[in-house]
Design a protein around this nucleic acid. Structure first.
Length: 283
DNA sequence: CATTTCACCTGGTGGC
DNA sequence: TGCCACCAGGTGAAAT
């Protein structure tokens, strides 16, 4: 489901509601593939620790955790993290902050009970998501492989694609180059930059690459402002849908008129993904 | 190495 | 109503 803007929206919402809270109980479903670290070890690491802060890196939600004595909740936001809980939402994952009596959604795979009485719940029908626990004392901090598209500079961005023969769309989706770009925002940014998805990445001109960098940045920023894209079932930490799907120019608009020139939007298969573009505006 | 394809899952939709 | 094919925000392992 979620790409950078959706994950950012969720991380902000979760942070605002659980920051400083303590995990008093953890429950995980028995789906082995969900766990990069075995569930039993995650439970052991989570219970008793304080959620210092929650933020986004690429498409990952990073919960910074600290061991703490019985300090007041106000002081806990300054604690030095000694572990991390990493949530990746896959295609259909949700991370929700609820009251304990809220009805359990089907496919709820994790529940963290907090000292305040709230619960942090991970729900994921397709189970493509991943949960990971990292002990910072072991020097095992989470690091995204790719660069952050919101802050990458012109030169660094251009260098990512130099000499590459694969399609620019496939390159945008490669998380070890850029982290956070998925199918929606790859298609939308290529539209705004006027570039065909099949163009070889290494053949784009400097001007095209800079148009792409700026288009990607502004598309992502506007999507964050609108709370992400809710194509079918995406919701934020409070169960609220986003609005950026109303701004989509090409994604899932096959056959509909281009917003700029009225030419019908085309759909092709590229890198195994549905790929949408305007044959007239994108060259 | 770089690049492509496919398996991993469930659920919704639209055609017959 | 049922059955079937196809589609869906992602990734990582295996094949080329």
């Amino acid at each position: 489901m979620p790409e950078l803007p959706e994950v950012e929206t969720i991380a902000r919402g979760v942070n605002a509601r659980v920051r400083g809270d303590r995990i008093v109980h953890a429950w995980f479903a028995a789906h082995r593939r969900l766990f990069k670290t075995p569930a039993a070890r995650q439970v052991k690491g989570l219970v008793g620790r304080v959620l210092v802060s929650v933020h986004r890196t690429g498409k990952h939600i990073v919960c910074e955790l600290a061991t703490s004595p019985n300090t007041s909740r106000r002081g806990r936001a300054d604690l030095k993290p000694d572990a991390q809980w990493i949530v990746h939402l896959g295609m259909t994952g949700r991370l929700l902050v609820t009251t304990p009596d809220a009805p359990l959604a089907t496919h709820t795979h994790a529940r963290l009970e907090l000292e305040s009485g709230k619960e942090l719940r991970f729900v994921d029908p397709r189970r493509f998501g991943k949960l990971d626990f990292r002990d910072l004392n072991g020097g095992d901090a989470f690091n995204a492989a790719g660069a952050e598209p919101l802050i990458i500079a012109q030169e660094e961005f251009a260098a990512l694609f130099r000499g590459r023969k694969l399609a620019i769309k496939a390159a945008l989706l490669n998380q070890s180059l850029l982290s956070g770009v998925g199918n929606i925002y790859a298609d939308e940014s290529l539209f705004h930059a006027g570039i065909r998805p099949r163009r070889a990445a290494g053949r784009l001109t400097r001007a095209e690459l800079e148009r792409l960098r700026l288009a990607l940045k502004s598309v992502l920023e506007q999507a964050i402002r609108l709370g992400g894209s809710s194509v079918s079932d995406y919701v934020d930490a409070e169960g609220i849908r986003g609005f950026f799907q109303l701004e989509h120019c090409v994604y899932l608009r096959t056959g509909e008129p281009c917003r700029r020139c009225n030419t019908p939007i085309r759909r092709i298969l590229l890198a195994g993904r549905g790929t949408h573009f305007c044959p007239k505006c994108q060259r």
